[in-house]
Amino acid sequence: MLRVFLTITAAALIAAAWIIWDRTRGPVSTPIADFSAPFIFGRFAVPPDNPLTEEAFSLGRHLFYDPILSGNNQVACASCHVQALAFTDGLAKSPSLSGGELGFSSMSLANLLWGQERFFWDGRAASLEEQALLPIQHPDEMDQDLDALIGELQTSRAYRKMFRRAYGEVSADNIARALSTFMRMLISSDSKYDKYLRGEERLTAQEEHGRKLFMAHPDTKVSLRGGNCIDCHSQFLTSGFRDALDGFSNNGLDSDEDLPDGLMAVTGNPAHKGFFKVPTLRNIAVTAPYMHDGRFETLEDVMDHYNDGIVVSDTLSPLILEADNAPQAGQQTVGLRMTPEEIDAIIAFLHTLTDDAFLTNPQFSDPFEGGT
């Protein structure tokens, strides 16, 4: 009996010591299991003070789906970024808490490890960590005071444990780090196009025609027809280019009189007036409506714009102005002037960018619904 008592007592002491140690120890750093990044997407950088860990990802996933991040506890990040829609919301402009609409369409969150290093349509955030906190505090988006949010999170035993394991403490910086880690892991690289690149699938004749048009800048001197897409949408990522502000462009939506500030509001440079971030075309078939203000409802509308609907303004991208498949001059409109068959082919190719695995990946889903 004494031996049994001593055994139970020792076990209890060990358990108690483990609890105390777990509460006082520093963060746990478990690298993301089986993490690999497609090499064709190019280089990427992760902040040294926010490495990709399982603990940070789990915390970020919970925060992303939790309406506790909003002042009224009713709006989560996932309210405007829905997984089945490639983390957009299917609206021209997201709803405002004060009624009406926000100024911009909800952007897809796919492949944020790559591409431009400035975020939002107008580039107002210089890092994902900065981007993560802005909607939380914006009065028309989530309207949450960060100190109040920290207080709410600290009352949750589950969140205290997750923060302790991921970063050590509940803080605004660590909220931003966790959300950024989750968003950095939203990698879409298993579409039909990706499988084609890996030699696992073949494109149809129409899709292949569309791919070639997508990659080509038209040159009538050598009878090269093209859709000019790659001039702004980098080849494999299909998002804007990384260098400097190359990932922002004026793509001919408005005249000088109606041109919104766009990137100029951030840089103060008049040459950036009407510049907006070039979005990824990954999963583009499920992210309608299109453009920064959601003005185009379908891919056909988008192609019509580039084909003969370009509006000339002082800061219009010369890559767009010079792209024309017709040899004769004197046309009344500026655009690609492609045939209906060529337009259909490009749209067919764009559909090969849909990644069903990404849209349904349980690791990116709402952890509160699945109990994980």
Rank of each mutant, 00 (worst) to 15 (best):
residue 103 G to C: 11
residue 133 L to C: 00
residue 49 D to T: 13
residue 157 R to G: 08
residue 307 N to P: 02
residue 25 R to H: 09
residue 59 L to A: 02
residue 209 H to R: 14
residue 41 F to W: 06
residue 289 P to H: 00
residue 343 I to K: 12
residue 75 V to Q: 10
residue 210 G to V: 03
residue 30 T to R: 02
residue 23 R to D: 08
residue 173 D to K: 07
residue 357 A to R: 07
residue 116 Q to H: 12
residue 43 R to E: 15
residue 115 G to M: 01
residue 143 D to K: 11
residue 267 T to N: 13
residue 312 V to F: 14
residue 20 I to S: 08
residue 297 E to K: 11
residue 102 L to G: 13
residue 232 C to S: 13
residue 31 P to V: 01
residue 340 P to L: 13
residue 95 P to L: 11
residue 29 S to V: 13
residue 186 L to W: 07
residue 61 R to D: 00
residue 45 A to G: 04
residue 89 D to S: 10
residue 120 F to V: 06
residue 298 T to Y: 05
residue 269 N to H: 13
residue 49 D to N: 08
residue 339 T to L: 12
residue 287 T to N: 04
residue 199 G to A: 14
residue 224 L to E: 01
residue 21 W to Q: 05
residue 213 L to V: 07
residue 179 L to G: 02
residue 149 L to V: 00
residue 50 N to K: 00
residue 322 E to M: 14
residue 312 V to N: 15
residue 191 S to V: 09
residue 323 A to L: 12
residue 19 I to E: 09
residue 125 A to I: 08
residue 146 L to K: 04
residue 244 A to L: 14
residue 364 F to D: 00
residue 163 F to Y: 03
residue 88 T to N: 05
residue 348 A to S: 03
residue 236 F to K: 03
residue 3 R to E: 06
residue 106 S to M: 06
residue 66 D to A: 10
residue 100 G to A: 09
residue 240 G to L: 01
residue 108 S to R: 02
residue 254 D to G: 04
residue 29 S to T: 13
residue 216 A to D: 07
residue 174 N to M: 10
residue 242 R to N: 04
residue 78 A to G: 05
residue 77 C to P: 06
residue 96 S to L: 11
residue 351 H to G: 07
residue 53 T to N: 02
residue 24 T to G: 08
